[in-house]
């Protein structure tokens, strides 16, 4: 089943007139995802850029029900919404919680792991810009090593937590990584996740040009370079079977890292160690 852009729905359920920065990666992720999910969707979003972008108080850019939750509880609220829908006998609605990397991996993690353990019928999406961008770009557990953030001026000293492996270990129905530079791959994964009877998790790499210190027109380009260099692997785990969806062309990681302002402190030895890590990861087989 090959998707083509011409077959996608024309309606804009999210994005038109949003309050994000120009060239926002999260807005691109939201628009692409809503092409797959459709209008029968209920969205819960904790504190994040995505929540503020959707509008506040009297104006909204969403065309679907959207609930702005507290920071820690987006998957828990989604579980409750699903339970209420089940009681009413409504079955055709996708329940989605959409959090940033902080709302998924750090602050929102206990609600997420609880919902995943109960195998609730819902989809959790993490749009990962590798920093706490809504509060000014602080370090989080999804920030990669050596990246300069507003509270770590010499660069992070510890590695990025592998959130996909953690979610895979829950034994849930569907785990996938996606990138905004590969929209058809992303949309196909959302369609697959929406059909699952249990918990699904999708991790989207959505660069933030403010935090990564790149020109705003290169947001998509860097999302692509991350995949092509092998640093962000696009794969899915379905029923325990792991499939790589995009084979990277293995450009040197240097081409991805050095143009970014946040890696200005990167030493040649550090680049070598990152390259060695990528080679080791892909050398171990599927």
């Amino acid at each position: 089943m090959a998707l083509s852009i011409a077959d996608l729905p024309k309606e804009e359920l999210f994005g038109q007139g949003n309050a994000g920065c120009g060239g926002c990666g999260a807005a691109v992720a939201g628009r692409q995802a809503m092409k797959a999910l459709g209008s029968r969707t209920i969205m819960t979003i904790p504190a994040s850029c995505m929540a503020t972008m959707g509008g506040s108080n009297l104006k909204t850019t969403w065309q679907i029900p959207f609930y702005h939750t507290l920071f820690e509880i987006a998957p828990a609220v989604s579980s409750g919404i699903r339970a209420a829908l089940e009681v009413q006998g409504i079955e055709d609605v996708n329940v989605v919680s959409w959090a940033g990397d902080a709302g998924t991996a750090d602050i929102g993690f206990q609600a997420l792991t609880g919902a995943a353990e109960r195998n609730e019928h819902m989809l959790h999406v993490c749009y990962d810009n590798e920093m706490y961008m809504n509060t000014g770009g602080q370090t989080g557990s999804q920030t990669p090593m050596y990246a300069v953030t507003s509270n770590m001026s010499k660069g992070k000293t510890i590695k990025k937590k592998n959130m996909l492996a953690i979610m895979e270990a829950h034994g849930i129905d569907y785990v996938a990584s996606a990138s905004i530079a590969y929209p058809l791959d992303l949309i196909a994964k959302f369609k697959k996740a929406a059909e699952k009877p249990g918990f699904s998790y999708i991790h989207i790499l959505a660069p933030c040009h403010r935090g990564w210190q790149i020109p705003q027109e290169k947001t998509i380009e860097f999302a692509r370079l991350a995949v092509e260099s092998g640093l962000f692997e696009l794969y899915e785990v379905e029923d325990g079977l792991r499939t790589r969806n995009v084979e990277p062309s293995f450009i040197p990681v240097e081409d991805y890292l050095t143009p970014q302002g946040r890696f200005k402190n990167l030493t040649p030895e550090a680049i070598q160690s990152i390259q060695a890590g990528v080679n080791r990861h892909y050398g171990r087989g599927e």
Binding site: Q16, N18, A19, G22, K59, T60, W62, Q63, P65
Partner: peptide
């Protein structure tokens, strides 16, 4: 069973399209 989903009470869906944010930044 088809039931219309509840609408956000304070905001009309898609109302930011008429007054978009950020276009004054455009250079």
């Amino acid at each position: 069973m088809v039931k219309n989903l509840p609408v956000v009470p304070t905001a009309k869906a898609g109302s930011l399209v008429e007054t978009p944010t950020g276009i004054t930044w455009r250079v």
